[in-house]
Design a binder for these strands. Structure first.
Length: 126
DNA sequence: GCCCTGACTGCTA
DNA sequence: TTAGCAGCCAGGG
C-alpha cells in the first residue's frame, strides 16, 4: 500500500470522531506524529471538496480554545456550530464548547497505525 | 528546488 | 481579558 499523503491521513482520522464529540487541530496533528503540523490539519480540511465533505465530519474539528474557527467561503463558524449543536454538542453564549464534556479522547498510536494501514476513504471504494 | 499560503498555537505586551 | 506576532509544516505553482 502506498504511503498516504498528510491530507488523507487527516481525513481518515477525522472520520473516526464520534457523533457529538469534538477535537482540535493540534490533537489530530499529534496523532499523526506531527504535533507542530496543526496548521496543516486545518489546511487539509479546507481542501475538502463539497463532495468529499459529505463523508468527512469536518465540523467536529475546532480550535483548541473550544471555538469554531472555520474560514471558508461556503461555510461560516455559525454554520459549523449549528451542525455540532444538532449532534448534541453544547456551546455557551460566547460560542465556546467544553472539551471536558464533549472532547474526543482520540486514538492510540496503535489504532492510528491500524487505521492508516487498512482504512479507505469513502470515495476510494469501488 | 524555492517561495508562498493557510479552517493553528503559544507567547508577549 | 484581548490583540498582535512569530514559528511551524505540507502542498501547490
Amino acid at each position: 500500500m502506498p504511503e498516504r499523503n498528510f491530507f488523507e491521513k487527516v481525513w481518515l482520522i477525522t472520520m473516526q470522531i464520534p457523533r457529538g464529540r469534538v477535537t482540535w487541530y493540534g490533537a489530530i496533528a499529534e496523532m499523526l506524529d506531527a504535533p507542530r503540523a496543526n496548521r496543516t490539519v486545518g489546511w487539509a480540511l479546507n481542501a475538502l471538496t463539497p463532495e468529499q465533505s459529505q463523508h468527512i465530519p469536518w465540523q467536529r474539528v475546532i480550535n483548541k480554545a473550544g471555538r469554531c474557527s472555520i474560514r471558508n467561503s461556503e461555510q461560516t463558524p455559525d454554520d459549523q456550530q449549528a451542525l455540532l449543536e444538532a449532534e448534541g454538542v453544547e456551546f455557551d453564549a460566547r460560542g465556546y464548547t467544553d472539551f471536558k464534556r464533549f472532547g474526543w479522547d482520540g486514538l492510540t498510536p496503535d489504532e492510528v497505525r491500524e487505521l492508516l494501514a487498512w482504512a479507505r476513504l469513502p470515495w476510494e471504494r469501488g
